[in-house]
Nucleic acid binder design. Structure first.
Length: 418
RNA sequence: CGGGGUGUGGCGCAGUUGGCUAGCGCGCCGCGUUUGGGACGCGGAGGUCGGAGGUUCAAGUCCUCUCACCCCGACCA
């Protein structure tokens, strides 16, 4: 994209009403816009990051054989009454409204019940199972207190997946595969080395659920981490009994702050029984469906990544989710612009996303924005490079640039991240 | 929901024990000079001090109510 022709605004001043690093940086760099507390709009750059994360998640979910769909934001009351969760005393984050005729409706804070209901209309036989579906949906939650920028909002984007199985064994098998898929996601978005499978409270149906926790100083959770085993225990279930049950030794655990970036649940057959979702097996017997559910907060994940990777100059996106791979800067006259235009076309045509800073502003401003936006590579075209046919390139975290011929430049950009 | 803090041009802020035409930086508009780390000069536009009510000769400043935002806590299948 050419900056001179796109909607993109950065600002030198740090927002006064934000404390969280992710919010400050993302607003400053022009990724998000605050509508109200806990409610943020995604500007073009921010949307690009969201889409990049979604694509990574999508590929992993598809790899599990799940099918993408999209549920509704408006939800019917009676569906939730089946499990007692329409009650404000049971669920305190409901946004509710009503139709003109007085019928009460809720705004989706979760889609578990509606999706169970939907599936029950289609799944009747063991031949229909197993099946798994997922969606990227905006969740609306009337949180008492929003905080930490996009890490805990009242409106946020979540990937939720639901798997329906015939037996506990079938469920378990899918559950284990999904754990791996989740770890793949965190690896691909750049959080691999910091993210751990964590035992957490399981809710009504099982002793534990599994969380994925990213170790980061600004995290909201405390976990006890066994680095060698790559496992952690959330403090909410941390006890001597649990440790011995999991085969973990207190001496080998380290207490660290972390942010939850995913949570998966095994509901067994309880949910199916509760919501009357049954199928007929090979022998003609009526059996409850086994359910498991799997969530990743996509917008929160973006916040955690922003929170994890930045320096005094701004954001530092992992290349897999950066809104562009290259920030192209031209400094000079017509010859420079010609070379820059040319490179922009070459890169764009070869599928490299480029932010081309062709604005009529001073170089310092371009450099500052390149850093603030956190684009992995910065390429500069000036009168010298226009003359010798080379290109100046520098990685976001590198101290100084190098000059390369076009081929080496392209190779470097598409090569492993520096 | 309990506790703490903050609301003053678009953004970030200052504004003394109430006192005169409410300031500063950035940004914005115009002209000129600049062009490798957010330039500089000159000239402009833009606020009635979150909102309502009250005290006072006089309120950005004091009081009451209210709205919004931030932080801590509680909460978070």
């Amino acid at each position: 994209m050419r900056l001179s022709q796109t909607f993109n605004k950065t600002t030198k001043t740090i927002p006064g009403d934000e404390q969280a690093a992710n919010a400050k940086l993302l607003i400053q760099a022009g990724y998000i816009y605050k509508e109200m507390a806990g409610v943020y709009a995604y500007l073009p750059l921010g949307l690009k990051v969201i889409e990049n994360i979604k694509q990574i998640v999508r590929e992993e979910m598809n790899g599990l054989g799940a099918s993408e769909l999209l549920m509704t934001s408006l939800q019917a009351k009676d569906v939730w009454e089946l499990t007692g969760r329409w009650d404000d005393d049971k669920v305190d984050v409901w946004f509710k409204s009503q139709l003109k005729n007085g019928t009460e409706v809720g705004f989706g804070w979760s889609h578990e019940e509606p999706l169970m209901m939907m599936i029950s209309k289609y799944v009747k036989s063991y031949r229909d199972l197993p099946v798994s579906v997922y969606q990227f949906q905006t969740k609306l939650r009337n949180e008492l207190r929003a905080k930490s920028g996009i890490m805990r909002g009242r409106e946020f984007l979540m990937k939720d997946m639901y798997a329906f199985s015939r037996t506990q064994a079938e469920l378990d098998e899918f559950y284990e595969r999904t754990k791996q898929a989740y770890l793949n996601v965190y690896k691909k978005v750049g959080l691999g080395p910091y993210t751990y499978l964590t035992f957490a409270s399981g809710g009504a149906f099982t002793q534990f659920s599994h969380e994925f926790q990213t170790v980061t100083d600004s995290g909201e959770d405390t976990i006890y981490l066994d680095q060698n085993k790559g496992l952690a225990v959330n403090e909410e279930v941390y006890s001597d009994e649990v440790l011995s049950q999991l085969g973990l030794k207190k001496e080998e655990l380290k207490e660290v702050r972390a942010s939850e970036v995913g949570n998966i649940f095994n509901f067994g057959s309880a949910k199916g029984e509760q919501m009357d979702v049954y199928f007929t097996d090979e022998s003609g017997q009526r059996k409850p469906v086994f359910l498991s559910s799997y969530g990743i907060g996509v917008s929160r994940l973006m916040g955690v990544i922003a929170e994890h990777f930045y320096d005094e100059k701004g954001l530092i996106w992992p290349k897999e989710i950066a809104p562009a791979q290259v920030y192209l800067i031209s400094i000079g006259d017509d010859a420079v612009i010609k070379q820059a235009d040319e490179l922009y076309n070459v890169l764009t045509e070869s599928g490299v996303a480029v932010i081309y800073d062709d604005r009529d502003v001073r170089p310092g401003e371009k450099f500052a924005d390149a850093d603030l936006m956190g684009i992995p590579w910065r390429v500069v075209i000036n009168s010298e490079t226009a003359t010798n046919g080379k290109y100046e390139i520098k990685g976001r975290t590198e101290a100084s640039p190098v000059n390369l011929a076009k081929d080496s430049l392209l190779e470097k950009i598409s090569g492993p991240e520096k």
